[in-house]
Design a protein around this nucleic acid. Structure first.
Lengths: 195, 195, 195, 195
DNA sequence: AATGAATGAGCTTTCATTCAT
DNA sequence: GATGAATGAAAGCTCATTCAT
């Protein structure tokens, strides 16, 4: 990568990083492009070199951060060593939940956007990479594809919704307290799909 | 109610009704107060007689619509005639889901705000009214209050998250197809909390 | 007209008057809306209460000033007392040319927009008023309508084009020097259409 | 011309050609330098190697295209074979009018800039070339120079103004229909100057 | 209570111009 | 000579809010 190319990437990264901080602290509606460029230390025009508007930047940010989240979980959860698919799923989820606990800003940012829809988008975008891994997960063969989809959909949406409240506000309980209940609930759902 | 009182109420209602339509169709960020008053047929200054700003109006709208939703469910689901608490819960949920299916705008509007938090707010605000009804629901005595809270929390968040996608986009399946799975999942969760 | 109504009209007039001065002195492209409102002594938002943008204001200005020009000619040229249609036409034209000579800014502003097209627009817009007068001018009956149209078109476009250069730059001669030639040319054209 | 020279000329031509298209289709005010360089396939900085700004380019374009127009008329109208000066003038004008009819974009571009002033500029700029031809046209000796100037001025301005409307909008008639009237009008003007 | 003209801070966006490569 | 990333002044425009009527 040439000097110029490096510089470009650096500016783009700076804008994304800054925007992330501002979006999470003040909300996207209350964040102006002036805020972003000022804090990022670039000129206003530079923003428009890389993004259409702040909503464009926001979308790119969501995709980017979701991918990071998922990649980390796949690389660090150790799911490959486990036997059952349910166990694999649980450790992947736990890894993500703890990443979010460590980074509540990210949780607030991704809030209610970690969804079935996004999950699919991320997977499709990375066929060569970890998406491949996902396809190897054997519980794709246990039942009909549709059934599996519904099962995953139910679980993902539930975990996503539940984690927001629990991690950010500890309401009604803290993440640590909640985890055993969550695991039990998930296992129960899985069982209900496979009896 | 005097003529003057009636007129006031009428203007306020008109503003709320109009705002609801605009918020759901264009989003709150893209709806201006000018839009609202113009469509409602009142003067700009009048808006400020009743609401602090559009976010104030929005909050009042959420509460109001949620209450209606819940009241209808309590009055029409026939939950009193059922035996077990789980059955009661399921028919109440179904009633709400079908109300939302009939009124997708309302679903889009309340989306991701039908939450544990709101559920509590609504209940607290109406102690005299139907909230009282809720307190009579016997499964409040079955287990410790905390356990019950966690259980309800888990279920409510799951149903809320799941219904949005299913009702509005029929993804991954339609509401009718999904309901049996949802019932089974809920029963599974309930069971996992009471074994 | 109520106090409020008067005030509105006053602001609108002030904006139009100011814009006229700026458009003629700096050109419309180099005039900003900030310039206009600042000089007119109103707030920026007020501009948008009355005009879509500066081009909208410009068009309204053209129509307005053209009407004034024509009205004055019809009221002061004394054309009614003359016998032939050609004589009537000539005194009306002369009146307009001398108005423009007195007000070169106006000429520069209307430049090359005093056209056949505009002439028609103005006449159509004022059916009740002086347009009525025009319709009474007997030379509308002398020849077929089409012939008359072509004749008027030729003369108006010529006078319009020619006057700009003559009045503003006295190139190749001054207005006074040019008038006899112009009259002779117009009479020649008229004759060529009626022989 | 060296390879380098050729390349330079080619870039300059490309910029002028592109600008012409953009100026006529969107207007000069709505055409940005970015538009021009992008469509011309050169870098932004390159523009400034050849032109001061877009208005500089515009002026060069006007001169250039006017010269082409006139050169063609002088070379193809066959005016040399005609007897009277009026006949020569008419065929030259007709040639130009038909060039413009074939190329309405050019007419729109040159609109209202084909004037007495420009006519002089073009003639002065090409003393050695076809301007010389013009000076040989005998009707320059028929009357006093001033009289001739006024005559030409009147005719050129009239034809210029009239042709725009007739060619581009066929209002009030088409060019073909209009030509006989125009010829008669011009002959009438000429006669009025020479009686 | 109701109005709506007026405000002006502050937003988004554009684009001519520069200059290191 | 040619490039195009970066700039930032300055434009157009919006809209929540006020307040005299």
């Amino acid at each position: 990568m040439s000097r110029v190319e490096e510089n470009k990437q650096q500016k783009k990264n700076s804008l994304m990083e800054t925007a992330f901080q501002l979006f999470t602290s003040k909300g996207i509606a209350n964040t102006t492009i002036s805020d972003i460029v000022e804090m990022a230390g670039v000129a206003k025009g530079t923003f428009y070199l890389y993004f259409k508007d702040k909503y464009d930047l926001n979308e790119k940010l969501i995709i980017h951060r979701s991918e990071q989240l998922m990649r980390h979980a796949l690389e660090h959860s150790g799911y490959e060593k486990l036997e059952t698919n349910t166990d694999k799923l649980l450790v992947i989820m736990d890894d993500i939940l703890f990443q979010l606990k460590e980074n509540p800003l990210l949780l607030r940012f991704l809030n209610k956007r970690i969804s079935w829809e996004l999950f699919y988008k991320v997977m499709e975008k990375n066929e060569e990479g970890y998406a491949a891994v996902f396809k190897n997960i054997p519980w794709q063969d246990d039942a009909g594809r549709k059934n599996l989809e519904i099962e995953l959909f139910t679980i993902i949406e539930m975990v996503s919704a539940v984690s927001y409240s629990v991690i950010l506000t500890s309401d009604p309980v803290s993440l640590e307290e909640f985890l055993p209940y969550l695991h039990r609930s998930i296992r129960a759902i899985v069982a209900s799909f496979h009896k």
